[in-house]
């Protein structure tokens, strides 16, 4: 979940449509580049991005007039997690100043994403699949649920969208297993949970006599 959470941050601050547009442009930028290990949907992918690559991507997103809104939508999130690899898309390092109201909002969003079959949960996973299509790395045989990918927009209201959503979840689980480092070696995920603990320290007072 922490690997795809930035897509939900964008969707929350702007819209799912905008998040899809960002994914499409990222896909177009990396299409044809000689890197078959990353689809650029997962946060950890951006820790493998070279300086030139990061600059090139920012220029590309600026040309599409997406960068200002993208960075603005991510700022509060990146202030919560300043060492997030996605912060490379910003022009300066995040200040790390925590906006408490945003923290509460973010917490609520994460609560929903805990259910990977929730609407937002499925939509952030669909970004990985969408990038696979744009990059030309994912091909789906006609007749399979994933071939009706655009139907995910209606998830979970239609029968077809439910089938597409289930296929997306299964495909992303497979992709994550193949493309991401092992959980214990995933630097971003470890950082995300460690930093989350700083933001929300555990409270053991309930163990004491009330």
């Amino acid at each position: 979940m922490p690997e795809l959470i930035w897509w939900d941050v964008i969707a929350d601050r702007v819209s799912h449509r905008f998040a899809a547009k960002v994914a499409e442009e990222i896909g177009k930028y990396f299409k044809g580049k000689d890197d078959r290990d990353h689809w650029w949907a997962f946060t950890s992918d951006y820790s493998h991005l070279s300086e030139d690559g990061a600059t090139g991507l920012k220029v590309h997103l600026s040309q599409g007039n997406l960068l200002p809104q993208l960075t603005e939508s991510l700022t509060d999130f990146l202030n919560l997690y300043p060492s997030c690899p996605i912060s490379r898309l910003l022009d300066s390092r995040p200040s790390g100043i925590v906006d408490v109201r945003y923290l509460l909002r973010f917490e609520d969003r994460v609560r929903e994403l805990e259910d990977k079959r929730s609407r937002n949960g499925v939509l952030i996973q669909s970004q990985a699949i969408y990038l696979g299509f744009v990059l030309g790395r994912l091909h789906v045989r006609q007749g399979l649920a994933l071939a009706d990918f655009p139907e995910v927009e209606h998830y979970p209201k239609t029968e077809k969208s439910l089938a597409v959503g289930a296929s997306i979840c299964a495909a992303v689980s497979m992709l994550a297993g193949r493309m991401l480092p092992k959980y214990s070696e995933d630097a971003w995920v470890q950082y995300f949970w460690r930093r989350s603990l700083d933001l929300r320290p555990l409270n053991f007072r309930n163990l004491e006599i009330q």
Binding site: W193, S196, L197, R200, F204, N206, L207
Partner: peptide
């Protein structure tokens, strides 16, 4: 599980 989803990985001791 702890109350906040941000620390859901950690389970709280309780009685």
């Amino acid at each position: 599980p702890s109350e906040s989803p941000l620390t859901r990985q950690l389970w709280m001791p309780r009685m």
